[in-house]
Design a protein around this nucleic acid. Structure first.
Lengths: 254, 254
DNA sequence: TATTTTATGAGCATTTATGAACGATTTTGC
DNA sequence: GCAAAATCGTTCATAAATGCTCATAAAATA
């Protein structure tokens, strides 16, 4: 017979492996009553290790699995809009700005509709679509290979195109943001494109909601100290923000 | 049987994949009643993951670059479709092809949906939009400055991007086609981009309907002898075609 | 060993998910 | 513009799943 902690760990592993499991199934597998399974699942859910459903539980998607473009938009929508609003305030007339692909930058694009005399360059099809009807902006696109998952253009062609320009401000999105591991994303080609963005920008402004903190993806983009500015929602923990400020990054709480 | 959360997620993916789905269809696919489908759709709509309609739901993921405006001015539609069909026959498996912006190349893009293992590169937003859901094709985009009139990318960034690749076949469109003046278009920046296309292609295939014959635009793209192949509709006069063949251009009548 | 704390499972009232029924609303066909 | 058909939202019944309580057993502590 397993100890409680041991069993909970096994349940978590089981659910992650099978993507899903019913209460009954778990009860049989681990030889405990359904009451116990429910208690365990409740605690595992509170620790964010899985998601309970009626009848059982499903695995949480990890950082290396990219949810579809729209699904991402749904999470922390309000927070992202706040972040976008703060970001938009940082854009001055006459600026040339670079917008990375991502739902937060999409919100930023929407905010930017009220601006004029701003030059925009992006590698995101969705951002382009959002801005293409606004003649107050001069719109350029970074070409390259289309990544279906994010509808962004990446790869060597994108990097060469980025090398041709210099921008005042680059608004970059990320999947993972960690004190140790820095800025990471699930895709290595996308990471290279983001890295190039860091190089060509006078000022790099990272947009991230608090859910990104502590997440580490497969491919490293940059160290935290390479960011000039971070805009994050109020859900971020103070310790993280203090550490970041110590590294010379100015932080805005949206 | 799926858990509620799982089913909702699957429904969202299904609708995004198929662009649309009816309540009945979803009920059959996921083996639940229509009541349940409606409940799920309601919640998914509240989370901004899709849009409900009478009878079902549609995807919001569609980033649509309405070709309608451009297509309305589409004269000689039938002829262009014939030309596109002939052009598509010239593409072999494994080819890398370049598609210029224009209504004829848009028709070609639609024809190409049935192909697989073909690499496509284009500077046209509309062509890209047409092909972006077909995973059988590897899709690259030439970036640059957006020309609102044609929804094509042009300029130095486009030319630099083109320089990075070599293609087997370039399908180029034109506004003017004249025995004396060669190939011409109204816009000088667009002409420069087309000229670059000529340079990087092993084989240049010009797509034109007979209305273009005798027209001369402001900016010269190339001489007629620089084309390898012309595909034109049956409305073209014989004298013109004879002269072209004398210059070493092979001609296909669609 | 005695006592307290913790983990577990069974019983039961409550909640939730679901499908069917039916009147209300919208779309379609003429 | 109207009638028929399709679709929708609401209500209700039901079966399954859940949370809660409590008794008991096991483990920890004194």
């Amino acid at each position: 017979m397993l100890f409680e902690e041991e069993r909970k760990r096994q349940i978590m592993l089981y659910v992650n492996e099978h993507q899903r499991a019913s209460v009954q199934e778990l009860g049989e597998v681990f030889q405990v009553s359904e009451s116990t399974v429910r208690r365990d699942l409740k605690e595992l859910e509170e620790s964010n290790l899985l998601k309970r459903t009626h009848g059982g539980a499903v695995s949480l998607q990890n950082v290396n699995f990219e949810p579809s473009v729209i699904e991402k938009e749904d999470q922390f929508r309000e927070e992202k809009m706040e972040i976008a609003r703060k970001a938009c305030e940082m854009i001055s007339e006459g600026d040339t700005v670079l917008l990375d692909a991502g739902t937060t930058t999409l919100h930023l694009a929407r905010e930017m509709r009220s601006l004029s005399n701003v030059r925009v360059i992006t590698n995101s099809m969705i951002v382009l679509n959002e801005l293409k009807d606004y003649r107050g902006l001069e719109l350029s696109m970074v070409g390259g290979l289309l990544r279906y998952e994010t509808l962004a253009f990446v790869g060597p062609m994108a990097e060469t195109a980025l090398e041709m320009v210099r921008v005042d401000k680059a608004f970059v999105a990320t999947n993972g943001l960690d004190l140790e591991e820095g800025i990471t994303t699930p895709n290595i080609i996308e990471a290279a494109t983001k890295r190039k963005m860091f190089q060509i920008a006078k000022e790099v402004i990272l947009l991230a909601d608090h859910s990104k903190i502590g997440k580490v993806g497969y491919a490293k983009v940059a160290d935290l100290s390479e960011i000039d500015h971070l805009i994050i929602d109020a859900g971020a923990n103070d310790h993280f923000i203090d550490q970041l400020r110590k590294q010379g990054v100015s932080v805005t709480i949206a």
